[in-house]
Computed example of a mutant assay.
Amino acid sequence: MLAKRIQPMAFQARRLYVELMFQVMGRALQAVSEIDATVQKEARALPEGFLFEMMVMPDGPRLIVEHIGNGRFHYHSGSAPRPVDLSIQFKHIAHAFLVLSFQEKTAVAFANDRMLVDGDISYAIRMTRILNRLESFILPRLVAKRAVKEYPANLHLPEKLLSAARIYLKVASNFVDTVRT
Rank of each mutant, 00 (worst) to 15 (best):
M1V: 10
M1D: 08
L2S: 14
A3Y: 10
A3K: 12
K4G: 10
I6C: 09
Q7H: 00
P8R: 07
M9K: 06
M9E: 11
L16T: 15
Y17C: 02
G26L: 05
A28S: 03
Q30R: 01
Q30I: 01
V32C: 05
V32N: 00
E34D: 07
I35H: 01
D36N: 06
T38N: 13
Q40P: 00
E42C: 09
A43Y: 08
R44D: 11
R44H: 14
A45N: 15
L46E: 09
L46Q: 07
E48L: 04
G49H: 08
G49Q: 07
G49P: 13
F50Y: 11
F52D: 00
E53S: 08
E53Y: 04
M54E: 11
V56P: 03
M57T: 12
M57S: 15
D59Y: 04
G60D: 04
P61Y: 03
R62Q: 15
R62Y: 00
R62A: 09
V65F: 01
G69Y: 03
N70C: 06
R72F: 00
H76P: 11
S77E: 08
G78P: 01
S79Y: 07
P81Q: 08
P81N: 09
P81G: 04
P81W: 02
D85W: 10
L86R: 03
L86F: 13
S87V: 13
I88Y: 12
H92E: 08
A94R: 11
H95K: 04
H95Q: 09
F97C: 03
F97H: 10
L98M: 06
L98Q: 08
V99T: 00
Q103K: 05
Q103A: 10
T106V: 11
A107S: 15
V108I: 13
A109E: 07
F110P: 02
A111P: 04
N112S: 08
D113I: 07
R114Y: 06
M115V: 12
L116K: 13
D118M: 13
I121G: 08
Y123K: 07
A124L: 06
R126W: 01
M127Y: 08
R129A: 13
R129N: 14
L131R: 04
R133T: 10
L134S: 00
I138Q: 09
P140A: 05
V143L: 14
A144P: 00
K145T: 13
R146V: 09
R146Y: 02
A147H: 05
A147M: 13
V148Y: 01
V148M: 10
Y151L: 07
Y151M: 04
N154E: 13
P158D: 06
K160A: 11
L161R: 07
L161H: 02
L161Y: 04
A164P: 12
Y168I: 09
Y168R: 09
L169H: 14
V171Q: 02
V171C: 02
A172G: 13
N174T: 12
V176Y: 05
V176A: 15
R180E: 07
T181W: 10
